[in-house]
Amino acid sequence: MRFRLRSQRRPPTVIIVALIDVLIVLIIFLMVTTTFKQHPAVRLALPESSQARRVDTHEEAPLVIAVDAEGRLWWGTEGAPLDLATLAARLREEASRHPNLRLALSADEKAPFGQIVKVMDAAREAGIRMVNAFAREPSRP
């Protein structure tokens, strides 16, 4: 009787190239099915104005103060909400650093007018001479 000697079995190997292909397919699938939304911090419905114009790209960007529909103040459109006393102090600080500072007021259509006037008063007290308001162009009929 002749017994056969079994040849030594090689240990199983993992084919890395196939795993990489599967991983790339999964990444592509996740990228295609994922939605990428940008959520603005402050959502404003700007009022329409027949005199609204686009800002030139070569102009220096103004400092933006936003007032939402509830009357909350925002430093920029994505900053944190702040109160009127903090706003006045920060405006004085910015005006001392930049003597020709321009302020752009971005207020919601339904924002309390009293809050807008308070922001304008704080800007005037800080020595900011140029205060503009954001508006949207009227819709075409």
Rank of each mutant, 00 (worst) to 15 (best):
W74N: 02
P62A: 13
R43Y: 03
T77Y: 01
P112M: 15
E48L: 14
F29M: 05
G114T: 11
G79I: 01
W75A: 04
S96E: 09
H58L: 14
E78A: 14
T33I: 09
G76I: 07
R97H: 04
A88P: 00
W74T: 00
R102C: 04
K118Y: 02
D68E: 08
T35V: 12
S50D: 13
G79H: 04
E59M: 12
H58V: 13
E109W: 04
Q115D: 03
P81R: 00
A104I: 00
L103M: 09
L84Q: 14
R102D: 03
L30K: 05
K37V: 10
L63I: 05
E78F: 03
D83A: 08
V42M: 07
L87W: 11
V119W: 00
E60P: 06
Q38H: 10
E59F: 11
E70A: 15
P40H: 09
E78M: 07
L101P: 00
L105G: 09
L73C: 07
D68G: 10
F29A: 13
N100Y: 08
P47D: 08
L63Q: 05
L46M: 08
A95M: 07
L44N: 02
I28V: 15
L105M: 13
Q51C: 07
T35P: 01
L105H: 07
A122G: 06
L87F: 14
E70S: 15
E59D: 12
K118P: 00
L105E: 09
L87P: 11
A61E: 02
A107R: 14
P40I: 07
D108H: 12
T35I: 10
